[in-house]
């Protein structure tokens, strides 16, 4: 059984994420205490809302440092939605510095007529990736910003929005992140979370 630590930075709906992980038999600890993150082997950075306030809360609570340290010491880190964006170096949303676990920046979707990108869309793997047979999949998105990884090797899967692809799954080493909401993506999302947990268990 995997023990998963979900970082609570005050940005709403963690109940469905907790439930989705528990359905996969994970033991889930939702916490806003840096000490809990310091000990965690699997850290999930969730998030809805805006990047600026979320980063402020992570910094103020001392969580930003412990998440960076967790990645440095080889813990598995999974970012979800806004959580994916927070893993990069900078976000245009609020023009702020983020966690910097992955090189690249986050910018507003400026090419599509209809924004937010809201609904179910294809997640197409760029090659053999850590989420294995969970992809390709059709998953649920709700976001206005996208990450642009500086290193193309960090792109695990892409999603096309109005004729242009963006990075919808990214990762490097034990850090991975998804722009969609696996906890709200039915059986497809469940398979993605299961693949992540399995990979973490295999590496342990």
């Amino acid at each position: 059984m995997s023990a998963v630590t979900v970082v609570d930075h005050g940005a709403g709906n963690l109940r469905s994420l907790r439930a989705a992980l528990e359905r996969l038999d994970a033991r889930v600890d939702v916490t806003d205490r840096p000490a809990d993150v310091e000990r965690a082997e699997i850290v999930v950075v969730p998030g809805v809302g805006a990047a600026g306030p979320a980063m402020e809360r992570l910094e103020a609570a001392g969580l930003a440092t412990t998440i960076r340290d967790a990645a440095d010491r080889g813990a598995h880190v999974l970012g979800i939605c806004l959580g994916l964006q927070l893993l990069f170096e900078r976000s245009e949303e609020g023009d702020i510095e983020c966690l910097g676990l992955l090189p690249g920046a986050v910018r507003r979707i400026d090419w599509a007529r209809t924004v937010p990108h809201m609904g179910w869309n294809d997640v197409s793997p760029s090659g053999a990736g850590p989420l294995g047979d969970a992809l390709p999949a059709v998953c649920y998105f709700a976001h206005t910003y996208v990450a642009e990884p500086a290193d193309a090797g960090d792109v695990i899967a892409t999603t096309e929005l109005e004729g242009r692809p963006f990075a919808s799954v990214v990762g490097r080493g034990r850090v991975a992140a998804v722009q969609f909401h696996p906890e709200r993506s039915g059986p497809a999302g469940r398979a993605v979370l299961a693949a992540f947990l399995r990979r973490a268990a295999d590496a342990a």
């Binding site: 709906n13 109940r15 469905s16 989705a20 709700a142 909401h181 906890e183 709200r184 993506s185 039915g186």
Partner: peptide
């Protein structure tokens, strides 16, 4: 809503 969040896996 709390119960739905635990059981329903679509938005």
């Amino acid at each position: 809503v709390e119960r739905a969040a635990r059981r329903v896996d679509v938005p």
